[in-house]
């Protein structure tokens, strides 16, 4: 990935972060921490990684994206809006009656949502079924999943992990959003599921560890899942920063679910918008060169 492409993607991710804050402004609260830790991955997938058509969300040949950790849905809504799946004004309905973008995603309300996740430990099974179904229907489509790290304590995930490997679902790619924090504190203190990589490897998966807030590393890891998958599903353990992009909230478990205190939202908006402006200038400069 050249530097211009990298900065362009970072800029889009910045705008998506702003979209998340727009939803918080509307709904007055939300699962912000995890949304911002995985949003670079979600941005990359929709803007570069996946075979999709926003004008035809039901296109049969499309790659599928599932947010197993459904509470991070503001990340997906933010990216879908930025990609043109729906008008950005819809973001202002977050938290309101009959909103198309509820606090956990609903496939029957919003085009682009593939599954009704939210209860943790469901997404990987659904994705495994999709991946096997697509393969056996002769479709060359892939299924991408973002899971939480705290979510890995749900036993049902490991049923799916075994099934995906056993049935050679090599079109299944999982990102574990390993920000290290869940609602009660550090994942390692609440229920230590580390080492995560070794667990997936032992279940028969390809595994890579990357910086999940780095576009270049996300791209490189995804290339490996195509070129070097050994007929196995792939797990990308994405080391991320919870609430990435809002410095006062970064790496703090209390921002898992955020009801902004006085001045917090304004400070967050300022920081995200400053970052967008900085990236716009960088992109402009790189374009001129």
């Amino acid at each position: 990935m050249d530097r211009l492409k990298q900065k362009e993607l970072e800029l889009i991710a910045g705008r998506c972060r702003r979209n998340v804050l727009r939803m918080i402004e509307a709904g007055h609260h939300g699962h912000m921490g995890g949304a911002l830790s995985c949003i670079d991955i979600v941005t990359y997938l929709y803007f570069r990684g996946m075979k999709i058509d926003p004008r035809n969300p039901e296109w049969e040949e499309r790659d599928r994206f599932l947010l197993s950790a459904g509470h991070k849905c503001m990340a997906q809504y933010a990216v879908l809006a930025e990609k043109g799946y729906f008008a950005k004004e819809v973001l202002d309905t977050y938290g309101s009656l009959h909103s198309y973008i509820p606090g956990h995603p609903d496939m029957h309300k919003l085009a682009g949502i593939e599954a009704n996740t939210g209860a943790l430990g469901h997404g990987l099974s659904i994705a495994t079924g999709m991946a096997l179904g697509l393969k056996d229907s002769g479709k060359n489509a892939r299924v991408y999943v973002v899971m939480g790290d705290g979510e890995l304590a749900e036993g049902s995930n490991w049923e799916a992990a075994a099934a995906a490997a056993h049935h050679h679902a090599d079109n299944l790619i999982v990102f574990v959003d390993f920000n290290g924090l869940q609602i009660s504190g550090r994942v390692q203190d609440v229920m230590n599921m580390t080492p995560i990589s070794e667990k997936f490897r032992a279940f028969g998966w390809n595994v890579q560890d990357i910086d999940g807030n780095n576009m270049r590393e996300i791209e490189a890891a995804l290339k490996m899942t195509v070129s070097d998958n050994h007929n196995k599903p792939s797990a990308i353990i994405a080391h991320t920063v919870k609430a990435k992009g809002i410095s006062f909230a970064e790496n703090k478990a209390q921002y898992h679910f955020w009801t902004p205190k006085q001045g917090e939202l304004e400070a967050a908006v300022r920081e995200i918008e400053d970052n967008i402006q900085r990236l716009e200038k960088e992109v402009q400069k790189l374009c001129q060169n």
Binding site: S125, I126, T128, L132
Partner: peptide, 9 residues
């Protein structure tokens, strides 16, 4: 869950 995923396709 797998059955659900298969039904989506």
């Amino acid at each position: 869950g797998i059955a659900s995923g298969m039904a989506t396709v």
